[in-house]
Design a protein around this nucleic acid. Sequence first.
DNA 1: GCCCTTCCTGACAGTGGCTGTCAAACACGT
DNA 2: ACGTGTTTGACAGCCACTGTCAGGAAGGGC
Lengths: 206, 206
Amino acid sequence: MEPGTGLRAITRNAVRVQIARTAEDLFLSRGYEETTIDQIASAVGISQRSVFRYFPSKEDILLDHYDSLGQQLLERLTARPDTENDWTALRRAFDLAIDQFAEPGRRAHGTAIQRLLDRSPHLLAAYLRRVDGVQQQMTARLAERAERQGRTVDPVVLRATVGAAFACLQAAVFQACGDEPAAQHVLLDRVMNAVHVTVPAPARRG
Amino acid sequence: MEPGTGLRAITRNAVRVQIARTAEDLFLSRGYEETTIDQIASAVGISQRSVFRYFPSKEDILLDHYDSLGQQLLERLTARPDTENDWTALRRAFDLAIDQFAEPGRRAHGTAIQRLLDRSPHLLAAYLRRVDGVQQQMTARLAERAERQGRTVDPVVLRATVGAAFACLQAAVFQACGDEPAAQHVLLDRVMNAVHVTVPAPARRG
DNA sequence: GCCCTTCCTGACAGTGGCTGTCAAACACGT
DNA sequence: ACGTGTTTGACAGCCACTGTCAGGAAGGGC
């Protein structure tokens, strides 16, 4: 029996979503730090202990969504053709991050989370750590890709490249968070063209 | 009476240093999460309450040093001549970050903190948030500089530029943390030459 | 030397995130 | 209806962190 298909898993996921929605409402109206887990729990109608059965920490209630987004980004990066260079492949993977918030409902969600991040240093720190984790995974994937293609790459440059690409994404998305997706694509293109990577002299393989 | 000059301020600072040193020793031997504030307090010979009078949080005991480094970086960036472009000015400011850990004593200190960051997600998050804060301050400084020079800059590109520069610094320093400063300078040069910024078509001022 | 003000400290109590435990309640197949 | 396995709530506890408050030390004026 494959995991995630039983009735149990369905109800479990429903509860997860309900906790996340309730928590987000409370965070937006009262602020993140000011909202306690007990308040979330009683608003949902469960015990505080159960909240921690569905989410490992308070931060995760808000940021869990970014984890799955990170995984999707990773998959899309892996799926990019070998003909693309690293910088372009990263840019194309980022399409997903922008389109994710294309629907009007999600767009409000994105701006809301951004405001919460601005107001809570703790939450911002948690967010940045997740982004860092995704960067490390992406760096590893790009290293595998280069290996497969027989290219020799400097791992430090690769890490810096991924970090620079994310810096562009962050700058663009934080600026144009509530804008049209098309405008965000244009902005990100502009930024990623300005900050870009010069592929070092293609080293032959020993 | 100017602040920071009385006998009071001197003893206060001595206690701060003692707490920081004691805490670092304990963190290194037992791990960050495993060391409680009570253990630090009793090792120093003061109450737990007093520890929080000297440092606002547990993270700060370790990371406070990075705050002052961030301020120094900011000052050096501001002091760079107007003839330098942003990317070069950032690179020159980073000289300070590398040379900071030049002395053998400090070098061990740096590698130690890096290991702690790797082992504690919470600590890593706190560190990343600080770095992000410094980035924002630097972006503001560079924007002022451009304004002063009569250049028109895209604030989003500027933010991404600073982020990219820090991505290079992070990648280089995390790789060659225990190496000679000279080697670190060379590595950072290589990375910052690979990932670099193309100044967009110089816009005339309206 | 004495007093007065100011600052610092330790002790105590309390909050909130988070974890371990355990017995009762529940869902499910038979 | 019955046994099995999972989920739940209640309770207790740890730890980072904060407010409060009385007692004591430091420093200045006399």
